[in-house]
């Protein structure tokens, strides 16, 4: 398998505080990698660096063998998409949110495609015109994930996206992510969920900013 990410001697610090210390890691394309570790250990910071939301203090991150700093940031983030733990929905309706990825790519809104994706996460087409204030927490997270996946990226980074969701919503999210992973999407998942950790086949642990086992 081709390496999608190669991380070399990566450090990240804020002022004098070292958040990440000498991270070295290779991630193969198509993996479903679970990132675990105590709160505040630097997992999210590492993921944000991989998503180019922040830049490493020193060290290199290669994406398909090329330094991520050489990519145009918006094009890169369309390939490496980051999903947040507590997403906010934009605008007034669900449509405003699902139209956003089309707007980013300067494309016409494709309603039939959107309906197909909504059904994938057990939401019917009436949701398109629902107010963002009328959707539950679980539905909100599913809609937010669709924003990331409507145009399939190469990598999806999920930062505790199932935290706070009930069993039913978690199952829907897991099913959707598994399907996308089988279609070739590389997934990097930060989680504290014991079941998710127990079921993970590929795992890395970050503790006190140090990668523990590769």
């Amino acid at each position: 398998m081709e390496k999608i990410f190669e991380v070399r001697n990566l450090f990240y610090q804020v002022g004098e505080t070292k958040i990440l210390k000498d991270i070295n890691l290779e991630i193969e394309q198509g993996k479903y990698l679970t990132v675990v570790g105590p709160s505040g250990s630097g997992k999210s910071t590492f993921m944000r660096i991989l998503a180019s939301m922040i830049s490493a203090t020193t060290g290199e991150v290669l994406f398909h063998g090329k330094d991520i700093a050489t990519f145009e940031p918006t094009k890169y983030r369309q390939k490496v998409s980051y999903a947040f733990q507590q997403p906010t929905l934009f605008g007034k309706t669900v449509r405003d949110n699902l139209a956003f990825p089309f707007e980013v790519r300067k494309q016409e809104f494709d309603e039939s495609k959107v309906i197909k994706y909504l059904e994938m996460v057990n939401l019917n087409q009436t949701y398109i015109d629902k107010s963002v204030n009328d959707v539950s927490g679980g539905e909100k997270q599913r809609i937010a994930l669709l924003r990331n996946l409507l145009f399939q990226p190469e990598v999806l980074i999920t930062d505790e996206v199932t935290a706070g969701l009930d069993t039913e919503n978690k199952a829907i999210v897991h099913k959707m992510l598994n399907e996308f992973n089988q279609r070739g999407l590389t997934i990097l998942r930060v989680t504290h969920d014991e079941t998710e950790i127990a079921n993970a086949t590929d795992k890395i642990t970050i503790k006190d900013g140090v990668l523990q086992n590769v």
Partner: peptide, 16 residues
């Protein structure tokens, strides 16, 4: 802040 971050994470340019 969070909304701007999410839009950037979806590949939006800083203006969008």
């Amino acid at each position: 802040h969070q909304q701007v971050l999410e839009k950037l994470a979806l590949g939006a340019d800083i203006k969008l």
